[in-house]
Design a protein around this nucleic acid. Structure first.
Lengths: 324, 324
DNA sequence: CCTTGTCGTGCAAACGTTTGCATGCGAGAG
DNA sequence: CTCTCGCATGCAAACGTTTGCACGACAAGG
C-alpha cells in the first residue's frame, strides 16, 4: 500500500549526497538551481515525499498545532476551526481538533494527549483554572481564546462596546425592564457580557434582571424563557445566539410576539439570519481572531517573545428584526 | 519552555538500559512488575513523556488520522467530528480536521498535505472523482463516508427506507404534488435521495417535482422556495435540514403556513427541534457511522484486510410539527 | 550434575532526516 | 603564479525511539 521512498534513494538516483537532496527541499537557495531541478525531477519520478516524523525528530517542529474547544457543535466554533486552519496552512501547519464536551477533566486529558505531538495549543473558552492554564502555557506555546489569564498570550473577542451600544438603543426605544440571560458559568465571555450589562444599565439608572441558561444550549434557554417572561422584561440580551434562539421559541410558545411584545438581542451572530424574525445580534470577526491566535502561537516560544500578549477584538452591533 | 527529557535519562536514573524503559511503556508485560514501577516513578519524577516522532519514525504509525470534510459549518459535520474523535481516542489516535470549503482542488491539496502525517484518512462527502479517490485509497488506508466507490472501504448513511416511509406517509395524508429540493450536485447523498423520491413516487403513480439548491445552504434554499410554491406542491422533501429550514423561511415570507399549506420533511435531523414548528426529519446514527469508519480504518492496510468493505446504515423517520 | 527452557534485561542497529564542518573548485586580487 | 575567498556539495553525527538477538540466571526435568 504505502510506497516508501527515502531521501537516499533520490540521492543515489542522480548521484548526489543525501544532504543535497535534503537541502533542495528545505533551503534551495544554497544549491545550484540546476541541481535543485534535478533533485525535484528525481523525487517526482520515484514519488518521494519527505517523512514528517524524521524531520520532526531532528528539528523539533511537528508541523501541527492543536485546537481545543468545548463543543464542536456549538455554532460559534466551526467558523473558528475553519479560519484557524486557514491561518495555520499559511505556516505549513495542520491542525488537530479536540472536543472536550465541556468537561474539565476531559479538557486536561486532551491537552496532555495532544501536547507531545504539537508545536502549540490554541485553547478556546477553557473551563480550566487560571493556575492550570499557566502551567500548561509554561510547558509549550499556548494561546487562549476568550479567556483572560495574565501571563499567557490570549485573544479576547470582546462585545462590550457593541453591547453597550445595543443597550443604549433599547433604552432609547423605550425599554426599561431589560434582562440578561447568561451562559456557561466559568466562561469569560459570559462574565464579560454580564458585567457589561450590569454597569451600562446602572449608569443609565436602570436595574438589570439576570437569568442563566446553565449549559448555554437551546433546551436550557427554552426553559428559562418562562422566568424572563414572568419578570416582565420587555427586552432581553442573550449570552449567545443559540440562547437567543431558545428564548424566542419559548416566547412564541407562550404567545409572545418578537419584537412587538419583547425584544431580543443575541450575541456572536452565528445563526442570526436563520431565525424568524432575523435575530439582532453582535457580529464577531472570527477570522481575525483565529489569525491572530495562530500568529501569536507562531511567535511564542521564540527568542524575545513576550509572554503577556493580549489581543482584544471588538464585535459590532447588527440590528435586524428582533429589536425595534 | 519545553523541557526535554529522554528515555536514556530515565534509564540512567535507575540504572537500566534504555530499551527497558522503552518496554516499560510499550510492552510492560515483558518486564518484572517491580521494574515497570521503578521506571514509571523515575519517568514521573523528571517529567518524561515519550517523543511521538521518534516513535513514529521507527514504527511507522503516527498516532493520528485525518478527517476531511467539505464544510465544518454545516451542522451535519460537527457531530461527526465529535464521534470520530471519540472513537479515535479509543485507539490512541488524535484527529486532524481539514475543511475543504467544498472546493475540489483544495480537497485534493489537503489530502496530500495530510497524507504523510497520518495513519489513515476518513473522507466525508468527497467531491473528488472515483478515479482520484481510488488512487488515494491505494496510497494509504482510507475510508469514505457517504461516497460509494467500489473497491474502497466506505460507510454510507442511507435514508432510502426512512424516506420511502415518509413519502408513503405524505401520500396517505392526501398529498399528491410532492417536491424534492436537492443539494450539492456531486453528492452521493443527494443522488441517493433524489433517486429514492423518484422511484418511490413513480411506484405510487405520482409525478415528482424536482428542484435544486445549488450549494445546499440556507440562502440557496430560501431562493428556491418561490419555485416550489409556484409549482403548486403541497409537500416538499428537502435534501437536508438546512435546506428545509431555508424553504420554511421562504414559505413563511410568502404567507404560506407550515404544515397547513405545505408540508416539509427534512433530512439528517441536525436542527430539527430548533425550527418552528419543529421540523419533521430523518434521524441519522452518526455515532455508529463515525465509529465504523474509524474501526474500518484501523483494520485497513492490515494483513487480510478486505479492500471492498461497504457499511450501510439506515436513518429513521421522525415526524414532528411540519407534516400532518 | 548436566541439559533444556523460560524469563528478564542489555546491546546495538535501525528509522529518515537535518546540519555543522570539511573539502574541492574556480575566480579575483596581489 | 600564488593566495585567499566564496560557493556548491559531501561527510558524518546527531535526533529519541523500537526491536531482533544475545546473554546470564535460575528452575525444572532427566
Amino acid at each position: 500500500m504505502k510506497s516508501k521512498s527515502t531521501i537516499v534513494q533520490v540521492a543515489k538516483r542522480i548521484g548526489v549526497a543525501p544532504s543535497t537532496v535534503s537541502r533542495a527541499f528545505t533551503d534551495p537557495g544554497k544549491l545550484k538551481p540546476e541541481t535543485v531541478q534535478r533533485v525535484m525531477d528525481a523525487a517526482a519520478e520515484i514519488g518521494y515525499v519527505p517523512n514528517h516524523h524524521a524531520r520532526a525528530l531532528i528539528t523539533g517542529r511537528s508541523g501541527a498545532i492543536g485546537l481545543v474547544l468545548p463543543d464542536v457543535a456549538n455554532p460559534f466554533f466551526p467558523p473558528l476551526i475553519r479560519y484557524a486552519q486557514l491561518a495555520a496552512e499559511d505556516y505549513g501547519l495542520a491542525v488537530f481538533v479536540a472536543d472536550t464536551a465541556e468537561d474539565t477533566k476531559r479538557e486536561l486529558q486532551m491537552i496532555e494527549r495532544l501536547s507531545p505531538q504539537v508545536e502549540g495549543l490554541i485553547i478556546a473558552s477553557s473551563r480550566l483554572s487560571d493556575r492550570v492554564l499557566q502551567t500548561i502555557a509554561d510547558r509549550q506555546p499556548t494561546v487562549l481564546i476568550n479567556r483572560d489569564v495574565a501571563g499567557v498570550p490570549r485573544v479576547l473577542i470582546s462585545t462590550s462596546k457593541a453591547l453597550a451600544e445595543g443597550l443604549h438603543h433599547l433604552v432609547e426605544t423605550g425599554h426599561t425592564r431589560i434582562a440578561y440571560v447568561g451562559g456557561p458559568a466559568r466562561s469569560w465571555s459570559d462574565a464579560q457580557r454580564h458585567g457589561c450589562v450590569q454597569s451600562t444599565l446602572e449608569n443609565l439608572g436602570l436595574e438589570p434582571y439576570f437569568f442563566q441558561a446553565k449549559s448555554g444550549n437551546y433546551a436550557d434557554a427554552l426553559e428559562v424563557s418562562g422566568e424572563v417572561e414572568a419578570a416582565g422584561a420587555t427586552a432581553v440580551i442573550a449570552f449567545d445566539d443559540v440562547v437567543a434562539h431558545g428564548l424566542m421559541s419559548g416566547f412564541r410558545a407562550h404567545g409572545l410576539r418578537v419584537p412587538e411584545d419583547i425584544n431580543v438581542l443575541g450575541c456572536d451572530d452565528t445563526l442570526a439570519i436563520t431565525t424568524h424574525p432575523p435575530l439582532s445580534s453582535i457580529s464577531l470577526d472570527l477570522a481575525s481572531a483565529a489569525r491572530s491566535a495562530v500568529t501569536i502561537l507562531r511567535s511564542a516560544g521564540r527568542p524575545g517573545a513576550s509572554t503577556d500578549q493580549r489581543f482584544e477584538l471588538e464585535g459590532s452591533l447588527v440590528l435586524r428584526g428582533t429589536t425595534n
